[in-house]
Design a protein around this nucleic acid. Structure first.
Lengths: 215, 215
DNA sequence: CATATGAACTCAACTGTTCAGTTCAGCCAA
DNA sequence: TTGGCTGAACTGAACAGTTGAGTTCATATG
C-alpha cells in the first residue's frame, strides 16, 4: 500500500556513495560537454545505471541543480575571507592587502571549474531562471559582505577614505578578479606574470585613490 | 542538366529582404530562448517558410554563425574610438577621458545585445569552437588597438607614466567596462547612477595612478 | 527488503527533405 | 498601357530519421 505519488530518493550508506559518484560525473561532463550530454553518458561515467540516476534525482534539471548547488558550497573563500578579515589589524596595509589579493585571485584561478560552472549557469539561464538568482547570491557576492566589512572597517579606522562604498567594492573586484572572469568566458586565461603585476599595481592604484593622506 | 550537388543560396532583391528578416528573427530568438529554439519558430517569427530558411542557410549551425558574424560587424566603436583618438590632443585630460569613457560605457550598455550574444557564443563553444576564436578577435579586443594607441600616445607625450602598458589596458577595461560585462552574465545590470560614479572615480583612480607628477 | 541493474520501450521534439502548387518581379509583344 | 509569359523564389504540409528524456519490468544483490 505504499502510495508514493512522488517517489522519494534512496537513502542509506550505499545510496549516498552512488549519489556522490553521479554528481561528480555529472559535474565533470557538464563542464566538458555542456548541458547537452545525455543521461546515459553521465550514468555510464558514474559507473551506474540510468535508472539509478533517475531514482536519485528524478530529472535532468534536478541533477543539474544538484551539481550547481553542491558547487555553491565550495571553499573558494575560507582562506580568502580570513585574509580579508585580518586586514583591519594589519600594520602594513599595502602588504596585507596584496597578500589577501593574492590568496583571493589564486582561489579564483585554481578553482576555475567554478567560473566555468558560472558560465554554464549563465548559458542555461533560459532553462533555469531560478538558478541564476541562486548563483548571484553565492557568486562573487559570496564574500561581498567580507569585502564590504573589510573596507568599512578600514574606513572607520581612518586608514582609508571611502566616500562611496558600493563603488569601491566593485572597483576592488574589477581590478582583481573581473579580468580572470571575463577572460575565462572565452576559455582564455591571464598568464601568471601578468596576473601578479595586475594584483600589485591594482592594489597600489586602489590604495592610492582611497588613501586619506592625499590632499 | 543543372547538376547542383550543393544548391547555392537565393539572390536578388526579394531574397535579400527575406534573408535579413530571417537573421533578425533568429538573432532575437536565439537571444531570448537560447540556441534551443526550433527552426520552425524562427521561420514563423521571420514571417517566412521553413524551407526558405534552409534554402538560404542550409543548416541551423550556418544560420547561427550568420547571426554572429553579422553582429560582429556592428558599431559599438565608431563614436567610441573617435573619442579615444581625440584624447591625445585634449587639453583637459581628465574631462576628455571621462567623456570618452562615458561614450564607451554607453555603447557597451546600450548594445547589451552584443554582450548577451557573447554569452551565447561562450555557451555554445562546444558546438562552435571556431566561433569562439573569431569572437575573441572582435570582442573587447576590437578596440584594444584603439585603447592601446591612445595610452601609448599619452605616454609618449609624457602626460602619463605607464611602465606596463599591457596591465594598464586591462585595468582601464576592468574599471570601466568589465563590471557591466560581468553583471550582464547574470542578466543583471548596473544602475545608471552607480555607472556614472564608477566612470568618474574609475578615471580619477586610473589617472591618479598613472599621472607622472605623483612622487 | 531496499536498492541497483540492464534492456527494451514510449513519447515528444527537432532537424532536414520532398513536393505540388503559389507569389511576384521583370519583360516582351500587341 | 495593358496583358500575359517566364522563372526564380516562396509556401504549406506532410514525411523521414534521429536523438534524448523518462518509464517499465523482470532480475540481481547485499
Amino acid at each position: 500500500m505504499s502510495v508514493d505519488s512522488v517517489r522519494q530518493p534512496p537513502s542509506g550508506p550505499r545510496a549516498e556513495l552512488k549519489r556522490q559518484a553521479i554528481v561528480r560525473a555529472a559535474r565533470e561532463l557538464f563542464l566538458r560537454d555542456g548541458f547537452g550530454v545525455g543521461m546515459d553518458v553521465i550514468a555510464a561515467e558514474a559507473g551506474v545505471s540510468k535508472v539509478t540516476v533517475y531514482n536519485h534525482f528524478g530529472s535532468k534539471e534536478a541533477l543539474f541543480t544538484a551539481v550547481i548547488t553542491s558547487a555553491l558550497d565550495e571553499p573558494l573563500g575560507h582562506a580568502t575571507s580570513a585574509a580579508l578579515e585580518e586586514l583591519a589589524e594589519a600594520e602594513d596595509l599595502r602588504t596585507a592587502l596584496i597578500d589577501a589579493a593574492r590568496a583571493w585571485v589564486h582561489a579564483v584561478r585554481t578553482n576555475e571549474d567554478v567560473i566555468a560552472l558560472r558560465n554554464l549557469v549563465a548559458a542555461e539561464q533560459h532553462r533555469f531562471p531560478e538558478l541564476g538568482h541562486a548563483w548571484q547570491g553565492h557568486g562573487p557576492e559570496g564574500h561581498h559582505p567580507a569585502v564590504a566589512g573589510a573596507l568599512r572597517a578600514l574606513a572607520d579606522q581612518g586608514r582609508l577614505a571611502i566616500p562611496d562604498l558600493e563603488a569601491a567594492i566593485i572597483q576592488l573586484y574589477a581590478l582583481l578578479v573581473f579580468p580572470h572572469m571575463v577572460f575565462s568566458t572565452y576559455g582564455a586565461h591571464v598568464e601568471d606574470g601578468l596576473t601578479d603585476r595586475l594584483i600589485v599595481s591594482g592594489v597600489d592604484m586602489f590604495l592610492g585613490y582611497y588613501s586619506p593622506q592625499r590632499q
